[in-house]
C-alpha cells in the first residue's frame, strides 16, 4: 500500500492525542487551571491535528462532513462520529476543569470511552479489509489500542503504567509482524484464484493492461519501501519501545520523559509507515506483483 503521509500523520498523532484524552478523562484527581489547560491543548493539538491531516488525502475534502452518515455499515463513518463525540464531550470536561476547577467525573469516563472508541474504530478501518491479509487480524486493533494507551500514559506523566503499557505494545507489535509476514501466503489467495485459472497450471502475468503505472498500481503496489523493511523495523522498534523504556527506567526527570515521548512518537511514525509500505493488496496479484 502507498504510505500516504497524511494518513501516517493522522494515525500517529491522533492515536497519541486520544490516548492522552483517555487518561485525562479517567483521572480521579485530574489537573485543574493552567496545568489542565496545557494538557488539553497538547491532547487537542494531536487529535485534531491528526484528524485535519487525514482530510488532506481526500479527493473532495469539502464534503468530509458527509462521512458522518453511514455508521450502520462503515467503520470510517463510525470513526468520524466517535472522534467528534469524544472531542465535544472532552471539551466540556476540559472547560470545567480549566475555567471552573470542577471535576465532572462521569463526563470524563464517557469521554475516555469515546476516545478509546475512536482509536478502535480507526484500527477497524484497516482490520476489516480482507483484501490486505497483513491487516486483517484482531492483532491490528490490539496494536493500535496498546500503542495509544502507552503513548497517552507517557504524555500524561504516568511513568510506571507507561512502562508496562510500552512493554505490552512492544510484544503486540512483535506478534503483529510475525503473523503479518505469513498472512498473505496463509490467506490462500494467489494469482491462481484471482484468475480462476490456477487449477490448469502455473499462472504468470505476461502483459499488464498498460505500459505505465496506473492509479491501482500506485495505490496498492508499493515495493520500494520493502527493501529496507527489516532495518526500519529495528529502528522503529528501538525508538518506539526500547529507548523510551530505558529513559523512563533510568531515572525520572522531565527532560528525560520529554525525550522518551519524542523517541516514542518518532518510532510510532516509522512503524506506521511500515504498516502501509509493507502491506500487500490482492490487486497486486493481477499485475504479477505484491
Amino acid at each position: 500500500m502507498h504510505p500516504a503521509p497524511s494518513v501516517i500523520i493522522f494515525t500517529t498523532l491522533s492515536g497519541l492525542g486520544f490516548g492522552l484524552l483517555f487518561w485525562l478523562g479517567l483521572d480521579s484527581t485530574p489537573p485543574t487551571g493552567m496545568v489542565a489547560f496545557a494538557f488539553f491543548v497538547i491532547a487537542y493539538a494531536l487529535s485534531v491535528g491528526g484528524l485535519l491531516a487525514s482530510t488532506f488525502h481526500l479527493g473532495r475534502p469539502e464534503r468530509a462532513w458527509r462521512a458522518l452518515s453511514q455508521w450502520r455499515t462503515s467503520w470510517l463513518s463510525r470513526e468520524g462520529i466517535c472522534a467528534v463525540a469524544a472531542l465535544l464531550v472532552m471539551a466540556v470536561y476540559a472547560a470545567a476543569l480549566v475555567f471552573a476547577g470542577v471535576h465532572l467525573a462521569p463526563l470524563g469516563w464517557i469521554g475516555a470511552l469515546l476516545s478509546l472508541g475512536t482509536v478502535f474504530t480507526t484500527s477497524m478501518i484497516y482490520t476489516q479489509l480482507a483484501t490486505i491479509p497483513r491487516w486483517n487480524s484482531p492483532l491490528t486493533p490490539a496494536l493500535f489500542l496498546s500503542l495509544s494507551l502507552a503513548g497517552g500514559a507517557l504524555l500524561s506523566g504516568r511513568v510506571t503504567l507507561g512502562l508496562s503499557l510500552l512493554l505490552l505494545a512492544g510484544l503486540v507489535q512483535l506478534a503483529w509482524w510475525m503473523r503479518g509476514d505469513r498472512a498473505f501466503a496463509q490467506s490462500g489467495t494467489d494469482l491462481g484464484t484471482a484468475t480462476g485459472l490456477g487449477d490448469r497450471g502455473t499462472v504468470r502475468s505476461l502483459a499488464p493492461p498498460h505500459t505505465s503505472p496506473n492509479y491501482l498500481m500506485r495505490e496498492f503496489i508499493f515495493v520500494i519501501g520493502r527493501k529496507h523493511a527489516q532495518k526500519l523495523r529495528i529502528i522503529g522498534f528501538v525508538l518506539m519501545i526500547v529507548l523510551p523504556v530505558l529513559l523512563l527506567a533510568l531515572s525520572f526527570s522531565h527532560w528525560l520523559a520529554a525525550l522518551a515521548v519524542l523517541c516514542h512518537i518518532a518510532g510510532v511514525a516509522v512503524c506506521r509507515w511500515l504498516f502501509f509500505a509493507e502491506a500487500e493488496h490482492t490487486v497486486g496479484l493481477y499485475y504479477g506483483m505484491r
Binding site: 473532495r60 475534502p61 464534503r63 483484501t131 489467495t189 492509479y215 496498492f220 493481477y286
Partner: peptide
C-alpha cells in the same frame, strides 16, 4: 456528488475495479 474521494472502497475491492479519478477527485 456525495463521494469524498477517500479511496476506502478501492482498498476494499479485491479486484481493482475502482479507480479514483485524478482530475475530479471522485471514485
Amino acid at each position: 456528488d456525495h463521494c469524498i474521494g477517500c479511496g476506502l472502497c478501492a482498498w476494499a475491492c479485491p479486484y481493482g475495479a475502482r479507480e479514483l479519478d485524478q482530475a475530479e477527485g471522485v471514485m
